[in-house]
């Protein structure tokens, strides 16, 4: 028997500012302003890439590589493969930068979607889905975030806010969403994994994602 709920809550511990090294929280207004500014910087770097700015790719990498790499590793549990995914995603962003439209979402959202899709594709291609699933959800190893010059307070604030919002979901909603997002399972596989009817799983995902959207601070 496989239990999902308890291990899934482990990443949410990041939301709790217990470490003295963690920066002090900003006010909500300041955090929103910082996120907006961050989104504008990302979009500007993307535009700079289309006009041939040689340094734009490196600067965008500095800002996004860490969360994207973390996401890729979270799905793949394999450092070389996570590196390959991040490498491919940045090249794809450079090649498709001209097609990006700000009204379709933030650059981070686009990059995260590309990373997740590529990582899940790799998981499926390796044909070790069952093995990866068994490792992914329950066995998340908590790693201490390494502060770098590229880390910003806004990233940390947002990361903490998302974790905090996730903890407010019902455990079954949280489990379904995490299995879908990080595990790359199909609806039926999630239902089988959670031993719940398919309709129930769909409803949990709908309610969970909508609540998460309401709980999270305004999206940039």
């Amino acid at each position: 028997m496989y239990f999902v709920s308890a291990p899934l809550f482990r990443p949410l511990a990041f939301a709790i500012p217990r470490s003295p090294r963690r920066p002090a929280r900003m006010t909500p207004a300041a955090a929103t302003s910082e996120r907006d500014e961050q989104a504008r910087v990302h979009a500007a770097l993307l535009r700079a890439m289309t006009s041939g700015d040689k340094s734009a790719l490196g600067r965008l990498y500095d800002l996004l590589a860490k969360p994207l790499y973390s996401l890729a590793y979270r799905v793949l549990h394999d450092h070389p493969e996570a590196q390959d995914v991040v490498h491919e995603v940045f090249l794809q962003m450079r090649d498709k930068a001209g097609l990006y439209e700000t009204n379709r979402g933030t650059v981070f959202s686009w990059a995260a979607t590309l990373t997740r899709n590529r990582a899940i594709d790799r998981v499926r291609m390796r044909k070790r889905r069952a093995e990866i699933i068994a490792e992914s959800a329950p066995e998340i190893r908590e790693e201490t975030p390494a502060a770098t010059g590229a880390d910003t307070l806004a990233w940390q604030e947002k990361s903490g806010a998302v974790r905090a919002a996730l903890t407010q979901l019902a455990p079954d909603q949280q489990a379904a969403i995490e299995l879908a997002f990080f595990g790359g399972l199909t609806q039926q596989e999630i239902a089988a994994r959670l031993n719940a009817p398919l309709g129930t799983v769909k409803a949990r995902i709908r309610r969970g994602l909508l609540k998460l959207r309401e709980t999270l601070p305004a999206q940039p």
């Binding site: 990041f14 996401l71 590793y73 979270r74 959202s109 997740r116 998302v162 969403i177 998460l212």
Partner: peptide, 8 residues
């Protein structure tokens, strides 16, 4: 996409 930030 914000869920990506919950990854360690």
């Amino acid at each position: 996409a914000a869920l990506a930030l919950t990854a360690p």
